[in-house]
Design a protein around this nucleic acid. Sequence first.
DNA 1: AGTTGATTTAACCATCCGGTTAACAAAGTT
DNA 2: AACTTTGTTAACCGGATGGTTAAATCAACT
Lengths: 201, 201
Amino acid sequence: MKKDLSTEEKILNAAKKVFLTKGMDGARMQDIADEAGINKALLHYYFRSKDKLFEQIFMEVASAFLPKIFTILESETTLFQKIELFCSEYISQEIKTPYVPIFILNEINRQPKAFLKKVLGNHKPPIQKLLVQIEKEIKAGVIKPIEPLQLLMNILSLCIFPFLACPMIQLITGMDNKQFNELMEQRKKEVPQLIIQSIKK
Amino acid sequence: MKKDLSTEEKILNAAKKVFLTKGMDGARMQDIADEAGINKALLHYYFRSKDKLFEQIFMEVASAFLPKIFTILESETTLFQKIELFCSEYISQEIKTPYVPIFILNEINRQPKAFLKKVLGNHKPPIQKLLVQIEKEIKAGVIKPIEPLQLLMNILSLCIFPFLACPMIQLITGMDNKQFNELMEQRKKEVPQLIIQSIKK
DNA sequence: AGTTGATTTAACCATCCGGTTAACAAAGTT
DNA sequence: AACTTTGTTAACCGGATGGTTAAATCAACT
């Protein structure tokens, strides 16, 4: 396995792998210890409890994923540019870390309120700006009238779902990872095209 | 709770509720017993093990959900009609049973091969027909050229994702169930419109 | 009423699992 | 070298959890 890493790094890598694939409930401390090639007691020496360790992994994963997205949504560019940038950034990110979406989704399901507090702190979710921008563009006659929330859902759906369903898709179609990723690369352009075409006047 | 149901029905209802919301790993036999208002030993009297009980629930849930979908995909109608019918049927179904999609998704993740075998048996996944139909329509010049798999992913994404992300959406927007369902009702027409518009010449 | 078979329960068992302890080893520090 | 701090391990602990058992209750039939 990993060799010259510090014990703490070995643990974090192992924990990330196990938590991402099995989720909080399905993960066993022993699994993580095995994966890291160390004694189980050492886990508790470095991270006092399973909860603490999970928390650390969760924050690491979440804060590598969400801020980029939020930044784009809150940026000052035009709506169309925003959509293009968001889709291609999001999909790139997901290709690199394919297990993250379902991990996050399940965590939201497990404890919705705790999740929000953890990832947003006291901030508001950064979608208000986008929704207002959409409404403005509608009133200005730049795009067709549409429920802003529907538009946002469409964007998120098209970007995220394929990664959530990746195992199923690969299973049904017999694709391997490489083929799947090629499809996803295509989507970086196709999704924004589809979205923009649907709202452009 | 439920009153005049047979014990077996009480158990199945309780198990469905608990498994759907907490998943196999997160569910406790005691939870199910409590939910059904019975003794834990009675669970094992009716269903020998947690695995057996889960299996039963899983099959019940899956076979209430998937066949309808498959039938539509394999029917003989035109592509456009198929898309319209599929989206509206699928979304209707999900409104009734909102926890099912994430439940199924997680089960696929947990044991992909076992899942396929369970829900398909020896059959082939019924998407081949649709993919061929799409290719035909492209060659016939009825719709724009598109990778058939991309089209299928788009349809599934737009139909399923909102329900997967339902807790998050409700959390962020502050919607309640009723408002959310209204949005979904809208989608029954908007999603097929969006899809068809994107491929129509 | 008594017999029989299905249902239900309380109590129990064994194992799993998160977490602790105490002893030991390695690496500094003086 | 003696001592302290840090890292690591084997063994253990207690509670949770899936599962079992044996007795009690109920229902149907004679």
